[in-house]
Design a protein around this nucleic acid. Sequence first.
RNA 1: GGGCUUGUAGCUCAGCUUGGAUAGAGCAGUAGGUUCCUAACCUAAAGACCGAGGGUUCAAAUCCCUUCAAGCCCGCCA
Length: 550
Amino acid sequence: MDFQKEIIKLLEKHVKNPTLEIPPSKELGDYAFPCFPLAREYKKNPIEIAQDLHKKIKPTKAIEKITVNGGYLNFFINKELLAEEVINQILKEKEKYGNSHLGKNKTIVIDMSSPNIAKPFGIGHLRSTIIGNSLSEIHKKLGFKTIKINYLGDWGTQFGKLIVGYKKFGSATKLKKNPIEHLLEVYVKANSEEYEDEARAWFKKLELGDKEALKLWKFFRELSIKEFDKIYKILGIKFDVNSGESYYNNKMQSTIKELKTKNLLEESEEALVVNLEKYNLEVCLIQKKDGTTLYATRDITAAIDRYKKYKFEKMLYEVGSEQQLHFKQFFKVLELLGYKWAKNCIHIEHGLYLDKEGKKFATRKGKTVFMEEILQETIDLAKKTIEKKNPKLKNKDEIARKIAIGAIFFGDLKNKRNNNIIFDIERFLDFEGDTGPYLQYSYARANSILEKVKTKKTTFKLKNLEEPEIELIKKLSAFPDIVNQSYTHLNPAIIANYSTELAQNFNEFYHKCPVINSEYKEQRISIVKAFMYIIKESLSLLGIETVQEM
RNA sequence: GGGCUUGUAGCUCAGCUUGGAUAGAGCAGUAGGUUCCUAACCUAAAGACCGAGGGUUCAAAUCCCUUCAAGCCCGCCA
C-alpha cells in the first residue's frame, strides 16, 4: 500500500497533476495538498477550493480523515494499516528492505582514496575513502555492480624529488624504522628550487625505465603500500582494484598520439597542451617541455582504459574540490576526443579539511597529521569510555575500533560534501549526541531487548499504537525513499541525517514504550526488530559497523 | 582579474535540487528524569531580523540580480 499514491489517485479525479507535501507538524496531518497554485486557474480563493475538494473527496480505508486548514487539504492516513504493512514487510525482507533492480547489469566505477606514495596518508584521502566507500554501498543496494579503485599517486615529478632527497639525505636504518616519516623528511628537504632540475631529470629517467630509478621507486612504493594497508585494515575498507598512475606509464604515448591525430594538441612554450580557452577552461597541459607527462595525461589514459575494461554506466572520481579545474579539463578533452561516455564521468567533490586557523594543510611545511595517530587516539578514547560505561564487556578492543571508526565516518558523512571541515580532534572524540556512537548505542540497546525476550511469530497485528511507535514506524517506512535520494544526489549525508532521526525516534520509543513487561510485548518486539534491520542497514551504507553490545 | 564553493542559534551543522503552514538537529548553558529492557539515553524551557540590499511570486532560507566576507583553483606538482 502506497499511501501517497492513493491520495494522488483521489485528487486526480478533480485536479491535474497534484503534488503532495509533508506538513510541518504531525497534528496537521500526514500529507497535505496546497491549493494555492489552483487559485489563479479557478479564479477562486484557495480556502474555497480546499473546501470544495473536501466535499468531493471521501475518506477510504487507508485514508482515515481529510481536513481543511486554510488553503491546505490535509490527509490523515490509517496508522495501523501503515504499521502493519511496513513492519511485516521489513521483517520479511530484512536488510534487503529498500533494495531495487535499478542498477541491474550496470557498472559504476569509483576512483577513491588514492593516497600519494611516500607521503603520509592525508586527511583529504580519508574523506575520499569514506565518501567513496559509502557511494559504493549505496549503488550496490540499488543493484549496481561497483568497482572501487584505489588509484595511487605513484608517478610524477615528485618521485624525482624523492629520489634526489633520498640519495642526498636518506638513511636506510631510518627508512626501515619509520618509512613514511623518513620519506617525508627527505622529500621536504629536497623540495626546494635548488634541486628542481635534478629532480626533473630523475623523473625523466624513471619514465624512460632507468634501472636505478625504478628500483628506488619500487622500494618506496612497497613501503608505502604496507603502511597504507595498516590504515585500511583499521578503517575496514577494501578495494576491488589496486592501481596507480604508474600502471599507465607505457600507455601514455598512444594517448598523445591520439590527441595529435585528432588535431587537439598544440605547442605552447615548448610544452604540448590542449587549448580549452574557448570553453573557459584555460589550457590542459599534456606533456612538459622535457618530454615527461603530467597527471592529466595519465588520467585521460586511465579513463579510456577503464571504459574499455568496464563499460561503466558512470565513473565517479571522489577527489577534493581543489582539483575541480583539472577534472573539468580532462573530461572536456575526453569529450573532444569523441568519447560519448565522457559525460558519465563525474567529479564528486568534497571540501577540504582545514587546520584550526582555517588554512589548508600543507605537507610541504611538514606540519602533517599522521592518520594512524589520529585513528589510534580515537580508538584509545573509545576504549576508555567503554571501561567507564561497561567494564564487563568482552572484546573491548574490537568494539572500541568499531566505535572509533563509526565516530570518524559519521562525523565526516553527516556533513554536506562540499563544506570545508575544520580539523579538530576534539570533534572526532565526541561520542554523544549526533554521532556514530549514538547510532551504534541505539542498536545495542535494541539488541539487548531482543536478547531478553524471544518470539516465534513472523507476522504481526499492530493495535493501539502510541505516538512514539507511530513516529518510529513512519520513519522506518521512509527508508527506501531515503536510499533513492542519496543515490540521485550522490550524497551519503542524506542517509546519515536520516539515521540520526531514526535513532532519535527509537530512543524516544525506548523510553516511553516498555517492551518486556507490556501487554503489547509482541507487537513492540516486532517494531524493535524492524528498527534493528533498518538502522544496521543505514549504517552499513555509510560503512559503519554495528555492535551487539557496547 | 577570472572560475568554483561557502555564509542559517554562542559553537558545529541540516533544510536550498523540486518555493508553501510555526526555519530543524547536535554541542555548550538552564530546569528535570535511573527501585523499570544499557543514562554513550530521555523530557522541558531558552536560544535565529536564514551575511546585506533589491527583484519575481498569493507565498522566498529556497528562484533571479547586486553587494560584502571567507576558502579553494587558475602551465610544465598531484
